[in-house]
Design a protein around this nucleic acid. Structure first.
Lengths: 146, 146
DNA sequence: CCTAAGTCTCTAGCAACTAGAGCTTCAAGA
DNA sequence: TCTTGAAGCTCTAGTTGCTAGAGACTTAGG
C-alpha cells in the first residue's frame, strides 16, 4: 500500500492532482488508513499511470473517462476505443496544421522588422492588419491543451 | 458609431467577448448612448481587430496588453515588440515539436489494433504503458491555447 | 517524546471565455 | 402611435485541468 505522496512520485502526478482526480470521480475513492490518509494498491498505481500517459498524449479527462469505462468491458469490440484515439489523432493533426500556419506567419512578421522605432514598426502594423498576412490562419478556436 | 453587435460582426469577435475585454481593461470603456448602450468608433474597431488578429496568432491577452502599451509609445525602439513576437514563435515551435511526437505515437498505437475485443486491445494496453512507446512524448506541461 | 514532513479538508484562483436569467432599449412594420 | 421582436444591459456561475493557500491532523525517525 502506497501513500498518496509515494503514488505521486512513482507516477509523476502531483498529489493535489490525484486528489482532484478522485474528486471528479476519475479515480475511485481510495482506501483510508486508521488516521484517514489515503492508501493505494498496485492496481491504483496502474490506473493512475494509464491516466497520466493518456494525458501526456493529449487526451481530455472526458476521453480518458470513456477509455476507462471501455476497458471495464473486455467483451466489447475494440472499435470504440479505436475511435477515441482516431479522434485524438485528428485533433492533433488539425492543431499541427494550424500551428504550422502560425509559425510561418510569425516568421514573416519578424522579417519585416527593420529594428527602428515603434512608430514605423512593421511588427505592430502586421499584427494589426490581417490582410497583410500571407496565410489564412483564421480558424475557429482550437483552444486547448498541448 | 457602431453598436456592440455591429462591432462584433465586423471584427469576428463575439459580443460577450467584447464586453469581457472591456471588463478586464484590454479595451477602454466604451462611450454610451442615451439608453446606456455601448457605442464604438472606427478607432475602437481597429483596436479590436488588432486584438483579434493577435489572438488568432496565439498571443495571450497578457502579451497583447504589452503590445498595445508599446504601440502607445511610438518613440520607443522596436525591440520590445520584436521580443514578444520572438517568444511567441518559440512557443509555437515548441508546441509543434510536441504535437509532432504525439502524432507519431498515436499513429503507432492505432496500427496495433487488430480490431478484436477490448480484452486483448493493444490500444488500451499501449495507452497504459509508456514503456511501449517509441518516442518520448513526456514533456512538462505546455498547457495552452491554439 | 518531539519534531518535521507529510497528509487532511476546504476555499479560491488561473486563462479566456461562454451561458443563462431577468431586465431595458431600440428599430421597423401595421 | 403602438407593438413586437431583436438586440442590448448587468450579474452570476460554469467550463477545463489543475494549482495555491490556510489551518488542522497524522506519521515516521531520532
Amino acid at each position: 500500500m502506497l501513500t498518496i505522496g509515494k503514488l505521486g512520485a512513482s507516477t509523476g502526478v502531483k498529489v493535489p492532482t490525484i486528489r482532484y482526480y478522485e474528486q471528479i470521480g476519475l479515480l475511485p475513492e481510495a482506501e483510508r488508513s486508521a488516521g484517514n490518509q489515503r492508501l493505494y494498491s498496485q492496481k491504483a498505481l496502474e490506473l493512475l499511470a494509464f491516466i497520466r500517459h493518456a494525458r501526456d498524449l493529449g487526451f481530455t479527462l472526458e476521453a480518458i473517462r470513456d477509455l476507462l469505462s471501455l476497458s471495464d468491458q473486455p467483451g466489447q469490440p475494440c472499435a470504440a476505443a479505436d475511435a477515441i484515439v482516431v479522434a485524438q489523432l485528428a485533433e492533433v493533426e488539425s492543431r499541427l496544421a494550424r500551428l504550422g500556419a502560425l509559425k510561418v506567419e510569425l516568421q514573416r512578421i519578424l522579417t519585416q522588422c527593420a529594428g527602428g522605432k515603434i512608430a514605423d514598426c512593421r511588427v505592430i502594423e502586421a499584427l494589426g492588419d490581417h490582410s497583410l498576412c500571407a496565410t489564412d490562419h483564421r480558424y475557429p478556436d482550437l483552444g486547448a491543451t498541448t
